[in-house]
Design a protein around this nucleic acid. Structure first.
Lengths: 210, 210, 210, 210
DNA sequence: TACTAATCGAGACGGTACGTCGGGTCTTAAT
DNA sequence: ATTAAGACCCGACGTACCGTCTCGATTAGTA
């Protein structure tokens, strides 16, 4: 694990206050939801969490990092609540279109859940402009989800439902990216109809069938 | 659209200093390119432009707004340089795939142009988290470009190269959004090959042709 | 009159707007009375007078100068109202003590007149810290009044009521300065009794009479 | 006198940086001496003291208050230097006139000491126009000095050198106020001769001795 | 069980930038 | 040529947070 970046003599994790960590997560998520990411400050988080500023600086290096961990924690918590077996996979009923539509409908629901909206939006925004945050965001939140699609598409290829020369990593962007862009940049409304349509277009193309 | 919002007694536009405006645009774009958006400050812009802070606050209400106008100005300028007739349209050679690939290759070039990269990334980021900036960004920069695709797809529909029931506004997202997301969130590399592939997948779908 | 201090090509006094001058005087005096000297600004005076800022800067060089002239104008006006003959002299009834007490009682009244209090206090304060204002204040407002005492004391000397070796310019400070200091620095209450006492002490001294 | 006024949550005096306080005092006094009171700014003091602006605003509410404390500190320091026993009293040799003349000569010297001149003049000026500063100035600087005269005059009364019906608080103004006014308003030169004369006039009056 | 060393809440500190106010100069159009 | 109006450059205001730095007062793990 090496010895921290530079200055401090590496804080002792075993003595860390779990109480404070939880309070900081809660405060960060609450504040982002209440006043928005730009108006959320380290001082504000510390005050709301009833914690000294140093306690934050000791364990994180920026408010983005705090929020990232807080959000990850929230996600894990939500996953645990959703039940251990359902632990986020894409179903494989044999019908690719139906499976994708089902999962995207869940995604639509989640994108509209206010508990998730504010922090994930904030992290995405920060990531657009901050290389480091971006890498973490993509690696820890985005890619794991996308990988599920890669797997499902590969299964479909083996079942002959997707042409073998298709690159699954690119294919999944046909439905994931449009939804992401509409959500991130408000370029259009988001609905079940919309995601259903995306799946149809992606699977069949827009050109006339033979 | 006509009267100002509330506070200030509406500055007199006819007396506005063109000199200052240009200097502010230049300073804002330079700073964003040099030190990044978060470290670009109104004070910094004013200082670099040789302008009083008040002159900025008189005409704009945030650094995002300044940058937006500066970037719009830059775009118009670039468009003017590109020649009056070429004024950004999508060619119609009769071959939809070829036309889209050609335009997307130009887009790839532009996304990699450092003059455009920093400011447009900054505006996109701000937009993700700031409703007002987002609307302006989409309305003034994004939608006009997307509309060109809508027109081209409709022409293709009339030529029988796209199924009539396809919604062009959704169709275009099949190639635009994946490119946008890779660029915004660094979720993958961007290349001519990539955009070519997107066009192929979008036109033909990923399912086996009948 | 020479040609102004430095920059401007000496404004043409004949074309000066009397209307503006009066409005500026009124605005300056009103503002000083209402919000105090430090919070009185050139911009405020201009706005309240319905006058351009430049009109003030053309004819005066500081807010202190404006206020000085405004106050002088007010004084002259008040003197004119008080009747032409009474035009401020010290009576000479032959009884020095009585005459001084009478005049000092008028001074007490004037010091408590709110129309005079704010501006003269402001000018005195500015003068303490600003050499130029101080000279003008003393020369145009203070000395003329003090000279009256000099004259009256000299007359008393000729009448044998004041010892011949006494310097009248110093003598008058025995009653003028204590009153001035109590007023300026709030070091004590001001009343007829007080000024009467001052005159008695000054004339007879505090040591036992032989 | 105990609890703070309203807004801030009362900074913790025990944690106060003595280093900063001293640096601020020095910077304030230096600046007032160098550029004058009006051109002395809080920002300037902070910069010269190598201190954040907030550190000034945390402990004082205006530049006048800073200067007041700085000057009080300077005075105490000077008093301490002058020796513990000489700690500013008025001598009592039995000869009132001689004692007063001696003390006033010291006062003349002090009024001409450039270290004291600038700040005390500034405070006096501010006090003329600012009630709050005035009270502090009078209470903490002026009155203590004046009280010494009251005591000395009372002693003289008991010794039969001052008439019993004389009010010492008023009597002292016969020599203190003239000196104060000449100094504050430059209404005349200040010299040993001048103060000697004041004492003579005050003790014996200006009228012929019976 | 007591000792000791790290973490904790708290918040003062040196800074940077904020958004506002006003100073003094300059330009415009209308008397 | 002066005026009302007000944009301009500039400097200071008082505030909000930054990230660093002490302070006792807990609070573990070790002696």
């Amino acid at each position: 694990m090496a010895t921290q970046s530079s200055k401090q003599p590496a804080p002792d994790t075993t003595r860390r206050s779990e109480r404070s960590r939880r309070a900081i997560y809660d405060a960060a998520l609450d504040l982002v939801a209440e006043v928005g990411y730009p108006r959320t400050t380290i001082e504000g988080i510390a005050a709301r969490a009833g914690v000294g500023k140093q306690t934050i600086y000791r364990w994180w290096s920026s408010k983005a990092e705090v929020l990232m961990e807080a959000f990850l924690d929230l996600s894990e918590q939500a996953a645990r609540e959703a039940g251990p077996e359902a632990a986020y996979t894409i179903p494989d009923t044999g019908d690719l279109a139906a499976d994708l539509k089902a999962v995207l409908r869940l995604t639509v629901d989640q994108l509209k859940d206010p508990r998730f909206e504010a922090p994930s939006r904030a992290l995405a925004a920060e990531g657009v402009v901050n290389e480091q945050v971006c890498r973490a965001f993509v690696a820890e939140l985005l890619e794991p989800s996308l990988q599920l699609y890669v797997d499902r598409v590969r299964a479909a290829q083996e079942a002959g439902q997707v042409r073998p020369e298709i690159d699954p990593r690119i294919a999944l962007e046909l439905w994931v990216s449009p939804l992401a862009q509409r959500w991130l940049q408000h370029t259009g409304p988001i609905s079940y109809d919309y995601t259903d349509t995306l799946v149809d277009y992606a699977l069949n193309g827009i050109a006339p069938r033979a």
